[in-house]
Design a protein around this nucleic acid. Sequence first.
DNA 1: CTGCAGTGTTGGAGCGTTCCATGACACGCG
DNA 2: CGCGTGTCATGGAACGCTCCAACACTGCAG
Lengths: 349, 349
Amino acid sequence: MSQRRVGIRATIHDVAAQAGVSKSLVSLVLRDQPYVSAEKREAVLRAVDELSYRPNSVARSLASRHTHTIGVLVLDLHNPVFVEILDGLHSGADDPHLTTLLVSAGGDSERERRLVLSLLDLQVDGLVLVGHRLTTETVTQVMAEKPVVVVTRRDVRRRGLDTVCNDDRAGAGLAVAHLVELGHRNIWHLDGGRSAVAQDRRLGYQDAMQTHGLGAHTTVVGAGFSDDAGWQAAGAVLDAGERPTALFVANDFSALGAVARLEQAGVRVPADISVVGYDGMALAAMRRIDLTTVAQPLHAMGLLAARMLSARIQDPTRRARNTVLRPALIARSSSAGPPATADARSRER
Amino acid sequence: MSQRRVGIRATIHDVAAQAGVSKSLVSLVLRDQPYVSAEKREAVLRAVDELSYRPNSVARSLASRHTHTIGVLVLDLHNPVFVEILDGLHSGADDPHLTTLLVSAGGDSERERRLVLSLLDLQVDGLVLVGHRLTTETVTQVMAEKPVVVVTRRDVRRRGLDTVCNDDRAGAGLAVAHLVELGHRNIWHLDGGRSAVAQDRRLGYQDAMQTHGLGAHTTVVGAGFSDDAGWQAAGAVLDAGERPTALFVANDFSALGAVARLEQAGVRVPADISVVGYDGMALAAMRRIDLTTVAQPLHAMGLLAARMLSARIQDPTRRARNTVLRPALIARSSSAGPPATADARSRER
DNA sequence: CTGCAGTGTTGGAGCGTTCCATGACACGCG
DNA sequence: CGCGTGTCATGGAACGCTCCAACACTGCAG
């Protein structure tokens, strides 16, 4: 009979005593090993049930040297884009015995560093960084210890680092192509700032404009990735002498801010100015919003990251892959043909 | 000198060897204990630095019997309301050595159960449930093992369970009072369904209507908590023979759906119909949306939950508290006085 | 009858910490 | 001088598991 006190979890010893076998045998049964007689197996399982025993995974991890746990750092949970990537991640980590530990510092680099290190101290088997603001030094340090997959950012490219991201340049091209197809020529870009992602989208825009023979119309207005940034930048557009007939904005949030500013000034979207965002967050599909956007395959990105990580955990010598997925344009009601007059006007030049 | 292989983390033994002391002494230094000579302390710290040693928290947890880690279950990361509660939680868990482990199953009861149990197996020191779909049985089981604080839901009331929520009935009252003050009389409610929260908001609405002498106008339309539910319900409102001048909707998402439906039908918000939501999610403040809403003190709720949990961890015998916080109405541009005609019409009766 | 392969079970040595009991040493006091 | 007290350092027993070596037993081939 077990001698455990109430309120204290049963241990493998308690189970062994209850079942009248050795703790080694209990361990064998629990880990589903062969060479255990049916009777003893049953006795053990009965004891497990009676004591409602659940193995202490801390002890298990210490002994077995792996935790069946992966750590996930998320840049910002307020941005639904990351949450959608997370969904994909979970469906990719299909092993039911795998726990994923989520951690977020809202973009604070130093806090992110601390969190990732404590994930490492918890002996996670691997890490997924869904956007991050870590220094390359920290990333290198982390990589030296455990497999790492980076999602979203393409800027950290080093040997042994798996990455998953979308092709921002091509995506920007899709946005421009969509607007050109609708008849727009005077298309401006509200950009995202200094980050690598923002830069790619900006370059993609500039390239595409050139390709479509609209180099002369190429205009970049400094903005950012927030609602507010889009609002401000749209204000600057309104104040400009000349007006575009369409705006390609750095991301969906920013695009929403821009639309709000335009509408507040009595400029109708899309009747007067079309707006295209980037990211394809689910929110953009809400009826009240209904924003045309370049959608990243968020779910697929998360799923792929999970698969790459588990492959890497299984085989640490595996060659690193940098996977770039293709985004897709989703046309909604924030984009339409240019107003006749504006169209005519822009053709005059 | 240490003999550790490359790529393998240094252990306390390596540090001890490097510093020429016993592992016990290293442990003392690391845990900042007194009665260690300055020289040895320094030697240990130097060795720690040279080997870039970080304690294995798995081993530490096993030996010390606590992990300085709290588990957090979140109902749905897609709902910014929960994310904002999480922010509060983090600022309440100020101890920098405390790690919070986040876990979410998107409302799948069975997956939630598994996740919470594995959090327990990881020996977290306590748990916060930010909305959940666990059975009362599971909650009881979890409570038996570790301190638990439940945020948002008030339906699970049992001895020893700390809870934090807002006063949904009073909040509904605020919404009605706001609309009445603006001159509305014919105020309808799009409800949230069967959940306890939805029920409270519905009852609060009904009570308030009665109190304001508008019992005759009391009308509840079945909806839900999603964008789509609001859209559908608003459709039903439009199809009704009579029309309200204001809508109090179960939550912000649903309210957004309702606004979209109304606008699509050419009904202006707030000129023709005012709309008030519930929750106070940051998104509702976005310029494009600008929804009048009953704001829960989300940050405070999270903060309080963290504080209650750490108090509970420190003193497990502490009496459980059920804290109910007061929501506040935030008036934005989705509510205004009723249209003159509608106002007059409703006064005729 | 011996030996060996396969099957079933066990004790005990880790895993990397914490923490307790113990001891060594120095100092001051009666 | 002996003794208590405070300071500093250490070995070793946990913590709850995994995993290996060893052993016992059975059955069968040689």
